[in-house]
Nucleic acid binder design. Structure first.
Length: 668
DNA sequence: TGGGGTGATATTTTT
DNA sequence: TATCACCCCA
């Protein structure tokens, strides 16, 4: 196995003496290092698999890593090995330490839509009209949880109207989650950290369990996640993290790339190994990537090199407008594919924002080119899936008020908003969940008899379903639940179009297939275990066996992937770098984004830009991205429209926007 | 209760 | 310009 590795990789795999930071440039084989190291620990160092934990950020990465370790070792040798996302690891800790984190069994996990609904509700209650601030508040709360800031601290540090209000909601939000016996995504990391802080004995037990920890994409960790890593590692030296500060593109959602530098402080005996040999791209592509990223400040210097030869120059195509851009790209793609006898899946079109995909989609469709669009609506955003999930959550955790409200009148039970409002008022008064309130005698003073009976009937039905799920087969319980409410009938009744209704039912069936598969893998799992696991999985990404299709995705979604031929489109000021990043002076992250885009390409890279582009209906002139100036001229080949780079105008734009922003800030 | 008209609003996205 | 949330009316 080791003969496939270069000296740096081998050193990273075998080094065990102190904590290790592997700075792995794009395409330098970082996943290989992690998988080989796991194999090395098990085979050469006799570490039991169940004492090794590898943490990634996406399910996809976790799955891939597991598969690759399996290939190296065989399935039975890796039994007990923990390869999971941070959130799944957190979930496992929370599940095992239920009481200590203040939860009851069957607790729900709120996804961002659930949490948004709850926050909106609370804001309505607290401030009346929540206006359009709900997302902002949700964002603030999430940022606090990611930065390990508790509600009290958030309230203390709040300096303006918005953060004061947000901090207030933060406290009540947490309180409500608790009464609903629910947690949100961020809590899955935050709660274990709090738990370990307050219970050293528990921490000791988990340290005993996880004796070697490996973290992938370390530059994406947020403060709370790093806290958890530090806790688990303790004074032992059993930590390997792999990351690339140049590929940190998620700081806007709490990732703290500073964590790379912090490692040096927190572990003075840290060893740093750099992987600088790139196995992916040609020399010219790498030279461009290196040149671009050298404009960013670096804590750790590194320079990628490749043995794959110089390759073709990078093409830069200027187009008249965004329509022509799409036309050109698709045109070039078709011809290139024909000339070289390539597959469609050898090509990717990468862009900054999702809205840019539309024109390319249209053009690809027009030319009958199959494409795969990454992103879009998540499986769990479909109403039918949300409905069914709410039923399942309700059965697992009847105190889940969010789920209760969602399903109480779906399908119709003659329990409309008026009734629920009164029930909620009563429940709130008594400090109970909606479900619990359905059984209370006092309710009769607030509602008419008929409504009371209906509520009672519903609550009892939930109880019987919960019973069934526990006593019998959980999947069978789910199936009979759906038959019981005749969900299919309801879909057919509410959709005008039978085709749509059938498609929705297919989605529901797929959900059940998933549950079945998960239950097969883990027969001891309860319904709530299954539902919680499902909430953490993005199913869209999963069954996408990419056929022979052109890939269309954002630069963010492209991280970790590679394609023989890449089109990097919309290389313009205000698009890449994005307008708001220019205003907020976070150009460096935009540069990393461009860097990620360039380094996805293996053999050829084509960059396009439009001279004019429609924005919000009006046609505007575009300037070429400043990043183009930062690429080595000798490696570029220009084509298309001539454009006069109006340097004065570009700077003027930047300045005036900045001035405007400053003006706004000083006023507010 | 649902659909159509109206007005605000406009990154990136995983768990 | 396109979308989406929201409100009002049938």
């Amino acid at each position: 196995m080791s003969d496939q590795m270069n000296p740096a990789q081998r050193a990273a795999v075998r080094y065990l003496d102190t904590p290790l930071l592997v700075l792995a440039g794009a395409g330098s084989g970082k996943t290989r290092v992690i998988t080989q190291k796991i194999a090395y620990l098990i085979e050469q160092c006799s570490v039991e698999p169940q004492h090794i934990a590898a943490v990634t950020f996406t399910n996809k990465a976790a799955r891939e890593m597991k598969a690759r370790v399996g290939k190296l070792l065989g399935k039975d040798k890796m039994k007990g090995l923990r390869v999971s996302t941070f959130h799944t690891m957190g979930l496992n800790i929370v599940r095992k330490e239920l009481k200590c984190v203040g939860l009851k069994s069957g607790f729900s996990i709120y996804d961002s839509a659930d949490s948004l609904a709850l926050i909106k509700e609370l804001m309505k209650k607290t401030f009346g009209d929540p206006g359009n601030q709900v997302e902002q508040v949700q964002y603030s709360i999430s940022r606090w949880k990611n930065a390990f800031v508790l509600p009290e601290q958030a309230a203390q540090e709040a300096h303006d109207a918005h953060s004061t209000a947000a901090a207030q909601i933060y406290a009540t939000y947490n309180h409500h989650l608790k009464t609903y016996n629910a947690v949100d995504f961020d809590d899955l990391i935050m709660l274990p950290v709090i738990l370990f802080r307050e219970n050293p004995d528990k921490l000791a037990a988990w340290r005993e369990r996880i004796r070697y920890l490996l973290v992938d994409e370390y530059q994406d960790t947020n403060t709370t996640q790093y806290e958890l890593v530090k806790q688990l590692v303790g004074v032992r030296n059993c930590l390997t993290v792999v990351g690339d500060d140049d590929q940190s593109i998620y700081s806007w959602r709490g990732a703290n790339p500073e964590n790379l530098a912090l490692l040096k402080q927190d572990f003075p005996n840290l060893r740093v190994i750099k992987l600088e040999q790139n196995y992916r791209s040609t020399g010219r592509i790498l030279r461009a990537a290196n040149a671009l990223i050298s404009n960013n400040p670096h804590v750790f210097e590194k320079r990628l090199w490749s043995e794959l030869g110089n390759g073709d120059p990078l093409r830069v195509i200027r187009c008249k407008d965004e329509e022509q851009e799409a036309e050109q790209v698709v045109h070039e793609l078709m011809h290139h594919r024909f000339r070289h006898g390539n597959k469609f899946k050898d090509y990717a079109i990468l862009y900054r924002g999702n809205h840019q995909s539309r024109l390319f989609e249209r053009m690809l469709r027009q030319n009958n080119i199959p494409y795969y669009l990454s992103g879009g609506t998540s499986f769990f955003a479909y109403t039918e899936i949300k409905d069914v999930m709410a039923y399942l959550r309700m059965v697992a955790n009847p105190d889940d008020d969010n789920a209760f409200v969602r399903i109480i009148n779906t399908p119709r039970r003659e329990l409309g908003p008026g009734t629920v409002e009164k029930l909620a008022g009563y429940a709130h008064m008594r400090g109970n969940s909606l479900f619990t309130s359905c059984f209370e005698i006092g309710l009769q003073q607030h509602l008419n008899q008929r409504a009371c009976e209906k509520l009672n009937e519903f609550a009892n039905w939930i109880v019987s379903m919960a019973h069934k799920a526990e006593e019998e087969h959980p999947i069978e319980a789910v199936k009979s639940l759906l038959l019981n409410i005749d969900y299919e009938r309801w879909l057919l009744d509410t959709c005008k179009d039978e085709v749509i209704a059938n498609r929705k039912m297919d989605n529901v069936k797929e959900l059940i297939t998933w549950l079945e598969r998960m239950h097969k893998n883990d027969p001891s799992a309860s319904l709530s275990d299954l539902v919680n696991k499902l909430t953490l999985i993005d199913m869209l990404k999963d069954d996408d066996e990419v056929g022979d299709q052109v890939s269309l995705m954002t630069l963010h979604a492209a991280k970790g992937l590679e394609f023989p031929h890449v089109f990097l489109v919309g290389m313009e000021e205000e698009l890449l770098p994005h307008r708001s990043s220019i205003e907020e002076e976070t150009i460096e992250e935009e540069r990393r984004l461009a860097y990620v885009g360039i380094t996805r390409a293996q053999r050829s890279l084509t960059i396009t830009m439009a001279v004019t582009r429609k924005r919000y209906g009006e046609k505007i002139d575009c300037q070429p991205s400043r990043f183009l100036d930062e690429l080595p001229k000798d490696d570029l080949e220009w084509a298309g429209q001539n454009v006069v780079v109006d340097e004065a105008k570009r700077q003027e734009n930047g300045r005036s926007q900045l001035a405007m922003l400053r003006g706004l800030l000083s006023e507010g």
